[in-house]
Amino acid sequence: MLTEIGINHYLVLSALIFSLGILCMATKRNAIGILIGVELVLNSANINLVAFSKYQTGAADGHVFAVFVILLAAAEAAIAIAIFMNFYTSLRTIDVDRGDELKN
């Protein structure tokens, strides 16, 4: 069980990283901290995709999906940081609890 690495090991690891990502998103009030939590969640999803690709199908589909996820994460980070900069120029902070108005 412990010396033979199977799919369950990877799944448990990804579940733990996923929960830590959720925890990070919930406890950080800094907008960039929340973005980092999202990256953790995406990484845990990627581990699952690749593990299934290795242990279940043996084909490259899981890898392709993971590449798309990485690509979307990069795009998301770029947009998110641009939004945070706008947020910062209008409110002089990036505390997400202060961003509760639609107009300032």
């Binding site: 690749v50 690709s53 890898h63 993971a66 990485i70 994460a73």
Partner: peptide, 15 residues
């Protein structure tokens, strides 16, 4: 370890 070399390299470059 999962033999996804390309993905590992992309992860390091992009992420």
């Amino acid at each position: 370890l999962l033999d996804a070399n390309f993905l590992a390299a992309v992860q390091l470059i992009v992420y």
